[in-house]
Amino acid sequence: MTDWQPSELAREREAFRRTQRRRALAVATVATAVVVGAVAYVVATAPGWERARQAFFSPERAVEVLPEVAEGLLLNLRVWVVASVVGLVVGLLLAVVRTSRLPALFPLRVLTVVYVDVFRGVPVLLVLLLAGFGLPALRLEWLPVSAAFLGGLAIVLTYTAYLAEIFRAGIESVHPSQVAAARSLGLSRGQTVRRVVLPQAVRNVTAPTASTLVSLQKDSGLISILGAVDAIRAAQIATTGDYNFTPYVVAGLLFLLLSIPLTRLVDAWSARQGWRGRLRGVSGGGVIR
């Protein structure tokens, strides 16, 4: 190694970049101040602002309803966790079945296609209503009929179909030469799927999977239409009788409190993965001028 001292040229460039960075920071600050100021001005000078502030942002009311809404949120959380786990596992299985060519799986494959087509095509709201009001009508003794259970079931049914499609795209994104390489080493069909195809497939679709899970977390609020007391329903109950809608705002903030860390967590997790895959050249190559 030679003993390197930055040349005049390098120092000049560095000084230039420093100036540019300072200028960029100044521009960002001014732009933010202008935007925030403009929004605040428009809102605060709106004729109905005083009424709206009391109706939506009353601090006392917020503190009052927080316990009830937070308790409702626990139900959303439970639905979210259960639906995520079931959706991920079953969705992956469905994707494998759908992409496999084993003749024994043929009937299952047809069922998978029908299932995915139906539940991806029907609005969640409709699935919820049908499950919530249709299933109890069957009077099956072994079937729990609580609103939370039926609502959760509808969410699981819908989101499993979404996740199955995402995983199928992931499986199809793995290049056939990977399968050739694995089979050429003597790995069986099943070993190739488990050890070579699926790990790559799952990594290739981390981002869409994560955003689907966030979306699932929000849609868990839909079970409130069946009467299950989740955060939204709790907020709704709290608003009846007076014209103060602060509980809805509280519920919204609580949902954000869940989903923002969730997205960050997934980002951090995928960054920690040793295999940076196809994004390496983009994210790891330094900033391109």
Binding site: S177, Q178, A180, A181, A182, R183, S184, L185, G186, L187, S188, V196, P199, Q200, R203, G274, W275, G277
Partner: peptide, 22 residues
């Protein structure tokens, strides 16, 4: 066929290493 393939080994033009494994 798996047993037969295990007795042979192929090296490919494009390497075909498994990108998710060290």
């Amino acid at each position: 066929a798996n047993a037969a393939r295990a007795r042979m080994a192929m090296v490919f033009q494009q390497y075909n290493l498994f990108p998710h494994l060290r």
